[in-house]
C-alpha cells in the first residue's frame, strides 16, 4: 500500500520559495542600495536609486513612445536572426566535419584561428565591406555564435557509434534520409550545452555590435544614448533588461528544450 500525500498549498509555497531562494539575495542587495541612496548616505550621480531605475524601466516599456520596449524588440530580432543562422551554419559545418575527417582537417585550421577572435574586432572590417549597418550587427552575432555550436555538433556527430552507423546503413536508405533519421538526432543529443553557450555568445555580440555600430534602435544603442544625456537610470534600466532577458532565455528556453528532448528520452537524469 502506498500513501499518497496530497500536496497542500503551504508545501507548494515553501518549495517555490526554496527554488527561488537565490532571489532573496538580489532583493536584499537592492534594498540596501535603496536605503543607502534614498537617504542620501551615498550621493553619486552615477549610482541611481533602484526605484529610479525601475521607474525608468517602466516608462521605457509601457509609457510614451515605449522606447525601451521597441529597442528590446529590435535587439531580440537581430539576436534571433543571427543566432538562428549561427546554429544552422555551425551545426551543418560541425556535423560535416564530425562525419568526414578530410573535411574536418580542411576547416579546422580556419576554425582554430577564429576561436580566439573577439566578435567585435570583425565590426570595423565588416563596416568596410557592407554599407548596411543592420547586416553588420547581424553578421557579428553570427560570427560569434556559430563557434560553440560548431564544436558541439562536431563532438555530437563524432559520438554516433560505429554500430549505430551500421544499423543505419543496413537498410539501403538514401544518404539524405540517413542524415535526417540518425546523424542529426544523434548529434543533437550532445548539442544542447553548446547551443546554450552559443546563445550567450550571441547576446554579448549583439549588444557590443549595437554600441559600436550605432544603427537604428536597440538596447545597446539605448544605453549608449542615455549616457550622452546623462540619463543614468535609463542606462541601468537597459543593463537590467539585458540581464533579465538573458536569464529568461537561458533558464526558460533551454530547460524546456531539454525537457522536450533529452530529458524525455532519459538521457539526462
Amino acid at each position: 500500500m502506498t500513501t499518497i500525500i496530497a500536496p497542500d498549498s503551504r508545501h507548494r509555497l515553501l518549495t517555490l520559495l526554496d527554488r527561488y531562494s537565490s532571489l532573496w539575495v538580489v532583493v536584499v542587495v537592492v534594498s540596501i542600495f535603496q536605503v543607502v541612496v534614498g537617504t542620501g548616505l551615498l550621493h553619486n550621480p552615477a549610482i541611481p536609486a533602484p526605484t529610479a531605475v525601475f521607474a525608468s524601466l517602466y516608462r521605457g516599456l509601457f509609457e510614451g513612445q515605449h522606447l525601451l520596449f521597441l529597442a528590446t524588440l529590435d535587439t531580440l530580432g537581430r539576436l534571433l536572426l543571427g543566432y538562428g543562422v549561427a546554429v544552422l551554419f555551425g551545426a551543418v559545418l560541425g556535423i560535416l566535419a564530425g562525419r568526414h575527417p578530410d573535411f574536418a582537417s580542411t576547416v579546422h585550421p580556419i576554425v582554430a584561428l577564429w576561436i580566439p577572435l573577439p566578435a567585435i574586432v570583425t565590426i570595423p572590417v565588416l563596416s568596410l565591406w557592407l554599407s548596411a549597418d543592420e547586416a553588420v550587427i547581424v553578421l557579428t552575432v553570427i560570427f560569434s555564435g556559430w563557434i560553440p555550436v560548431y564544436l558541439g555538433a562536431l563532438q555530437g556527430a563524432r559520438s554516433i557509434s560505429a554500430h549505430q552507423l551500421w544499423v543505419m546503413r543496413a537498410y539501403g536508405a538514401s544518404e539524405w534520409r540517413q542524415v535526417c533519421k540518425v546523424i542529426i538526432p544523434g548529434a543533437f543529443v550532445h548539442m544542447i550545452p553548446s547551443l546554450r553557450v552559443g546563445m550567450g555568445y550571441a547576446w554579448r555580440a549583439v549588444i557590443a555590435a549595437e554600441i559600436i555600430v550605432q544603427h537604428g534602435r536597440g538596447i545597446g544603442i539605448t544605453i549608449f544614448a542615455a549616457r550622452e544625456f546623462f540619463d543614468v537610470p535609463t542606462m541601468y534600466a537597459g543593463v537590467l533588461m539585458i540581464a533579465v532577458l538573458g536569464l529568461a532565455l537561458d533558464h526558460l528556453v533551454f530547460p524546456a528544450v531539454e525537457r522536450a528532448t533529452i530529458k524525455r528520452w532519459g538521457l539526462l537524469t
Binding site: 557509434s161 554500430h163 549505430q164 551500421w166 544499423v167 540518425v182 538526432p185 544523434g186 543533437f188 543529443v189 528532448t261 528520452w265 532519459g266 538521457l267
Partner: peptide, 10 residues
C-alpha cells in the same frame, strides 16, 4: 543484432 543493442535513444 549486436551485443550492445544499438537502439536510437530518441
Amino acid at each position: 543484432v549486436f551485443q550492445d543493442f544499438v537502439l536510437f535513444p530518441w
